[in-house]
């Protein structure tokens, strides 16, 4: 099929428009589609236009907070690549792996939107990482034990568990990664 607008290039995009209750379909080529609908961008293999999705969301958030406009300005900035959270929402793509730490607070909201409500990884863990994850889980478990021990006034036991936690934390820190255990 040839593009409805330029009648030259093959149509590759179908645009459906609703006007006064009537839906109209137009078949456009990439060039004309980009001209008429500049916000579509290149979505790669993603099943929907995430930039649009995310930027609509921040516009919505901005409208809600109209009384306090400064709260939605640039947001956090990634120390490694300089991408701001606002810019990330506009383009729908991270700049570098460190962006995940820089925007950690905001990311659950983002993932809730684009991942059907899911915010936490439950799949494969690289071998090099699984030692660390296991240590973190162990620490969480020990903290529970320590609280219990304190609760039942077994202070000697609580102190022993505390030392075990400290030791695990030290070995994690020596592994090169700063672990936020809270």
């Amino acid at each position: 099929m040839i593009c409805d607008h330029c009648h030259e290039r093959p149509a590759s995009v179908v645009v459906t428009q609703s006007k006064n209750g009537k839906t109209q379909e137009r078949h456009l080529c990439d060039v004309c589609a980009a001209h008429f609908h500049p916000f579509q961008g290149d979505f790669g293999n993603d099943p929907f236009g995430i930039q649009q999705f995310l930027s609509n969301w921040i516009v919505g958030a901005a409208a809600q907070q109209a009384g306090r406009p400064q709260t939605v300005e640039e947001g956090a900035e990634c120390p490694t690549c300089g991408l701001t959270f606002k810019r990330f929402l506009e383009r729908g793509k991270f700049g570098c792996p460190d962006c995940y730490s820089a925007f950690r607070e905001e990311l659950p909201q983002v993932f809730r939107k684009v991942q059907n409500g899911h915010v936490e990884h439950t799949g494969k863990v690289p071998e090099s990482f699984s030692g660390r994850v296991a240590a973190e889980r162990k620490i969480a478990e020990l903290r529970g034990l320590m609280q219990e021990a304190i609760g039942s006034e077994e202070f000697e036991e609580a102190a022993r568990v505390r030392d075990e936690i400290r030791q695990l934390e030290r070995s994690l820190a020596e592994g090169g990664d700063q672990v936020d255990l809270d």
Binding site: G44, D46, P47, I50, G92, K93, F94, P97, Y100, S101, R104, L107, V110, F111, V114, Q115, H118, V119, E120, H121, G123, K124, V125, P126, S128, F129, R132, V133, E136
Partner: peptide
């Protein structure tokens, strides 16, 4: 590999994360 304890495998687009 870039991997995050909470979010899993880190990707350029949030629709691939995890």
């Amino acid at each position: 590999y870039a991997f995050d304890g909470d979010f899993g495998y880190i990707t350029s687009c949030p629709t691939n994360t995890g």
